[in-house]
Nucleic acid binder design. Sequence first.
DNA 1: CGTTGTTAGTAAGGTACCGTAACTAACGGC
DNA 2: GCCGTTAGTTACGGTACCTTACTAACAACG
Lengths: 395, 395
Amino acid sequence: MQSTHLREHNLSAILIALAAASTTSTPTSRAGLAKLTRLTKPTVSKLIEELVDADLVEEGAPLSIGAGRPMVPLTPARGTLLAIGLEIAADHVACLGIDLAGRVLSHRVEYLKVTAASAEEAIDLAAELVGEVRAEAGDPPVVEVVVAVPGRIAPDDGRVLSAPNLDWTEVPLVRRLLDHPQLAGLTVRAQNDNRLSVLTEIDQRPGESFIYLRGSTGIGGAVVIDGALMTGAHGWAGEFGHTVIEPGGALCRCGRRGCLEAYVSYHALRERAGLGDDTLIEDLVDALALTRDRAEVIGLIGRSLGFAIANALNILDLTTVVLSGYLAPIAEELEPVVRETVERHALAIEAGPVLIERSDGLTDPALRGAARAALQSVFSDPGAWIGREPSIPAR
Amino acid sequence: MQSTHLREHNLSAILIALAAASTTSTPTSRAGLAKLTRLTKPTVSKLIEELVDADLVEEGAPLSIGAGRPMVPLTPARGTLLAIGLEIAADHVACLGIDLAGRVLSHRVEYLKVTAASAEEAIDLAAELVGEVRAEAGDPPVVEVVVAVPGRIAPDDGRVLSAPNLDWTEVPLVRRLLDHPQLAGLTVRAQNDNRLSVLTEIDQRPGESFIYLRGSTGIGGAVVIDGALMTGAHGWAGEFGHTVIEPGGALCRCGRRGCLEAYVSYHALRERAGLGDDTLIEDLVDALALTRDRAEVIGLIGRSLGFAIANALNILDLTTVVLSGYLAPIAEELEPVVRETVERHALAIEAGPVLIERSDGLTDPALRGAARAALQSVFSDPGAWIGREPSIPAR
DNA sequence: CGTTGTTAGTAAGGTACCGTAACTAACGGC
DNA sequence: GCCGTTAGTTACGGTACCTTACTAACAACG
């Protein structure tokens, strides 16, 4: 490591510690940050001064707690930077702008049957929403734009390889977005919506390790180790949807047999119960419970999930499972069934209980996650947002 | 990060880069290390000087390659430090001493039916071997002692919780070893033998990501991501032995049904074929081939492995599988069967071929891995081995 | 056989960053 | 009003690294 990088490293560490502390509603001072980061007070003071000058950190009014000189509470600056999340879903396009503090500056949703429209149309709409969000937020500098798409995305150039729910194949999404004046000159990245949803969950559970399962039209998932999303060789580690839970079992959309997704996804459950395709995902379980015993429905879903989870826990040796999407509202119902199945199959049980928890259920996790991902570059390299800006040395 | 740590970080980076480079038999100079670590030549020179003074790095005779001033080749020092690996296996106790360069300084094996003897006896023998190895190596400073045990180990105090193949339960291994004069004052750690075996494989594949499967009395395994061993919540991530491959299938030693280990471990295969318990692990497949068609044996093993591997690949999104233990010699035979099974079940296939490779098959991987693990602290904190030694600041 | 070009390594000085020690600021409690 | 306590600043010094420029040692070429 070069000594220039030391400064950037410490700036980043301080900003990250500050952001983490301010989500806990504990006011944080320079002295507090010094303890958290194990740097000395003068060092923190000097670095904080630069962050304040660069409008990345805000000072509050002095605040007295107990004896001693009152602290000057610090928070990530509000409204000075804009991180933009976009979401292109089957029935809507949405855009969310947040600042460093994670506060929503602007939010726009337009309903659009994307499958019925052309990709161009959806992308035009998305760009338009970006323009509106930027304007409403007061047109501060934009950090980055991250687009959530329900499909597979080429890691190199942000092409959408396939997005079945949108009827998209080979759409050069990022390139097309960059053609629009509202996004000219910005950094734009595309990511799978499920993977971005996890970021929202990671925010709620900083530093934890868990398996994330999201029930949606398909089954998405992810593996989080110590607060870091596992990627894998192609970026789809933790996609539990196509874990085989019954060799030679039900036919899956992917062409194989016995995948988890062939049993507990919205599509699979709806079709097997003969429900119409106007059934909303959030109403799925209630609708199923009308066609047969609710306990039976929960049992089917729970046992299928449990089997997939058991295998994952065996391989990963983790203890926490977070259920999201349409699985979140029924997490408490599922818990005993899943737990029983997991305990029958998983070795890790011997080490203690497996926790099966519901996602904190914030709305629009993919959209929030996208905006959150757009923020990331500021935290990992605040130096780039300060006047000096050596950050990327010429080579 | 504090500025004192910068030096340690860079010392460590240089030593690690040097060690990595010298395994590739490419002679490396100060200038070469400067390029590898992205530090400048003067910085590398100064740090290397300290490492040479501390006997951690050796200079060779100047070596001319092409034009320009000849380089001074550098290598990790040989014979100046001793890292000790111990192995306690069912039928022997072994001790290996290596230096920074990974060269074997001394090696001792004593055959002992550990199950027939007391734990005390085995531990006494181990300590004795350590004494002999230290003496033969010329009694240089000992870095650390790492003990490989085929069982589960308490992470905090190195107690062996259970080691079925040794008939051990609750043996305070590390504490007892420290009682012996040969190990007085040393740092001693215990680790599962399979997990240490992986370290030997990681050495051969620096920076790679792969799944490791080791056929032995049981089935051990591990997950390696970018050259780092995944641990999990309790340190047994990647223990594929108890992945369920057939719900409600064959009864396993662990009390559950359908585990991988109940099909392809030495014990399971031997017993199902009615072979005597004097069959050696390395002869297992040949012996099985006498009782029935060899293709059938390979097919059984391959399909079972393939199913477990497919699930793991789906979850982890990796592309390489390394077979070790008794599986290594038959890796080429297994490959088509495993590949076919994996391709039928694994999603990741769509991204390209899955590589099923054999371990490089060094003898005694667990013992080597233990010695290698004992070396680790030098590489991660060379500062502690240099006169200055601030390393662990008082708190 | 000297000249030129190339690469390895060293020397000297400067700079950036952080840490230490001591100080001021601002409060509560007695 | 004094004292103890905590927040934050100032001044200074040390450490580590970088830049620039140099020397060392070789190959290739005419």
